[in-house]
Nucleic acid binder design. Structure first.
Length: 570
RNA sequence: CGGGGAGUGGCGCAGUCUGGUAGCGCACCCGGCUGGGGGCCGGGCGGUCGCAGGUUCAAAUCCUGUCUCCCCGACCA
């Protein structure tokens, strides 16, 4: 019998002073987690029950698509990480053993699993395979934050698929996508699958599973017809803008002390969208060479770094003041026409040419801008979608939303990136050696829990989806030990447990208010109250946590009635 | 990594400017009352004031160094 009088559930009336996120405050207050250090958390018994319920759901769905559970070590030799090029990653914890051998604490397990694949998979007959584990990951985060949302150590479900070729990988990837949809639906959270950046090191395709919530660190763009994309990669139609007519040729305008878009717009009494913003960057190529590029955007738009990096296919940095002065013009008055070095490459954001008319651009001379500038006629350019979507944009004429969200899972097509580097090859039916095609798929159970807290909390506390609540029923007994209502509660506990419900039984010698407040804080889907009052009336009070609706059930057959009600809950 | 803030009993805080016996609320322990929204009365326990060094007759308080934690941003294979 799980009695609250003997259960380690240290609830707090007040949240930690330094907590900001709702999930951080409530998970601490409800006695689910306690902090050990920055980004390092202990899961207390009730919190661990939530975590393990999420794990159980994931395990069932991974098994359902043929996943095979295994366990790989957290502590690993550095060698494989050097070979995949990931040893230099800042977030990777590095250490030495007593023999001074270089070791790492794994942040994921591609190196280990691919090394195993290289040793165990020989023939096309050995493929496909999918393995998975629940294992701790270690990341030396620059800034852990928001309770268990962003930590340095956390359990991840990571799975890895091995296929003969890209088509096989596509199937494994799709099967994971189906499993993930079931997992997040079963966990009862609101989620989106978003288009995502694959990063520089990765292959073809990836998806991010995003749970919208206020504490989210990512922004997702949600449009019509199921369009959902991470803001990093999202595209949309910019707000239309009325432009001044194009002039036969650019015309210089004196614009003293207008080196910001705001001041220039005010000076010319034009909307910011009728101006152009010049953003000089330096593309950094793998061979160490660099190239100065001028990015041109509408005045009301911002550069999206991820899009620009993808466009270049390489990292970039902002140009230095010296580089700008030498080859373009004075800061605040940059533009594509009349650059000191006319050979500087100009890349135009697609939103600029979407509207006809003449733009204003810097003249590359102090205190001077040009009016009536037309791309193509006045300068040569390349076109690319490089701007960050704004909430005012539309898609197909429909409005969009931008919501903060937390990434609870992701799926990647790695192709042969790791297998090629670590020699994971097999012989095909013709005896030809080929690299294994891999996929990598993660879910963070802690983030699923935190997202559920964020999404459903109210002023009284947490409101768990029933599938991942620490307990199904919070049984509250009022009255003194030894009283008839206590005896009834004891009996009810056994009956509910007999119906395979998980019950937490508040048998403490405490006031009703305290017990109710703790029950609402902990957030189990049903609260059942046994009291003298109810006993006299022959009924029990049942409160649904979500919405706080009260009902009563007759004492006779109460357990069955509670179980039936529980099955109807979200 | 840049900026800002904070370390005083389990939690939340005051005291630091202006050096002089370490306090408050909650929690906790004991006794009693109460028993449907964190109730009441009485009596208690608990703190090397993050750490180290210095100044001083005397340091939570002043000085130096250091560690840790939080928030915003950058970053986030």
């Amino acid at each position: 019998m799980t009695r609250l009088s003997h259960y380690l559930l240290p609830t707090e009336r007040e949240a930690p002073a330094d907590a900001e996120a709702v999930s951080h405050k409530l998970m601490v207050r409800a006695g689910l987690v306690r902090q050990v250090g920055a980004g390092l958390w202990t899961w207390l018994p009730a919190g661990w029950r939530v975590h393990q319920k999420i794990v159980a759901i994931i395990r069932e769905e991974m098994d359902a698509i043929g996943g095979q559970e295994l366990l790989m070590p957290l502590l690993q030799p550095a060698d494989a990480w050097r070979r995949t090029g990931r040893y230099g990653v800042d977030e990777l914890f590095k250490l030495r053993d007593r023999k001074e051998a270089e070791m790492v604490l794994a942040m994921t397990h591609e190196e280990a699993v691919t090394t195993h694949a290289a040793g165990m998979i020989r023939s096309y007959r050995d493929l496909p395979q999918t393995v998975y584990q629940f294992q701790v990951k270690e990341r030396d985060e620059a800034r852990p934050r928001a309770g268990v949302l962003r930590t340095r150590e956390f359990v991840m479900k990571d799975s890895y698929s091995f296929d003969r070729d890209a088509q096989g990988l596509d199937l494994s990837y799709d099967r994971h996508a189906e499993a993930y949809a079931k997992i997040f639906d079963r966990c009862g959270i609101v989620w989106y699958r978003a288009l995502a950046d694959v990063g520089l090191m990765y292959g073809r395709e990836s998806g991010e599973y995003m749970a919208p919530c206020a504490a989210g660190e990512n922004d997702v763009v949600i449009g019509p017809n199921g369009y959902v994309a991470n803001l990093e990669v999202a595209s949309a139609d910019a707000v239309r803008v009325e432009l001044p007519p194009a002039l036969p040729e650019p015309e210089a305008v004196s614009t003293p002390d207008t080196d910001t878009i705001e001041s220039l717009a005010a000076f010319l009494t034009l909307p910011a969208a009728a101006l152009t913003k010049a953003f000089p960057v330096v593309k950094q190529l793998a061979d160490g060479s660099e190239e100065l590029v001028l990015i041109l955007l509408r005045g009301d738009h911002r550069v999206n770094d991820v899009k620009l990096r993808r466009f270049f296919g390489s990292p970039f940095r902002q140009a230095t003041a010296a580089e700008i002065a030498d080859r373009i013009g004075p800061p605040g008055y940059l533009g594509p026409v009349g650059m000191r070095d006319p050979g500087v490459r100009v890349v135009l954001d697609a939103a600029i040419v979407a509207a006809p008319g003449g733009y204003v651009a810097g003249a590359n001379r102090a205190d001077t801008h040009l009016r009536g500038v037309q791309a193509g006629r006045d300068f040569t350019y390349e076109l690319a979608d490089l701007r960050e979507v704004t909430a005012a944009d539309t898609i197909g004429g429909e409005p969009i939303r931008i919501e903060p969200a937390i990434e609870v899972g992701n799926i990647f097509k790695l192709d042969d990136y790791y297998s090629a580097k670590l020699g994971a090859n097999y012989l095909d039916a013709n005896g030809v050696s080929r690299p294994v095609f891999m996929g990598s798929y993660g879910i963070g159970p802690a983030r699923v829990a935190a997202a559920a807290v964020e999404q459903f909390a109210d002023t009284a506390g947490i409101s768990w989806p029933r599938a991942i609540a620490p307990f199904d029923v919070h049984l509250v007994s009022l009255g003194k030990p030894g009283s008839p209502e206590r005896e009834l509660a004891d009996d009810l506990y056994e009956r509910l447990a007999g119906l395979r419900l998980d019950v937490i039984y508040d048998d403490r010698d405490a006031g009703a208010g305290e017990k109710f407040a703790d029950a609402e804080l902990l957030g189990c889907p049903l609260r059942v109250t046994v009291s003298r009052r109810g006993l006299a009336a022959g009924e029990l009070e049942v409160q649904r946590r979500r919405g706080a609706e009260m009902t009563t059930v007759p004492i006779d057959g109460a357990a069955e009635a509670v179980a039936a009600l529980w099955r109807t809950l979200p």
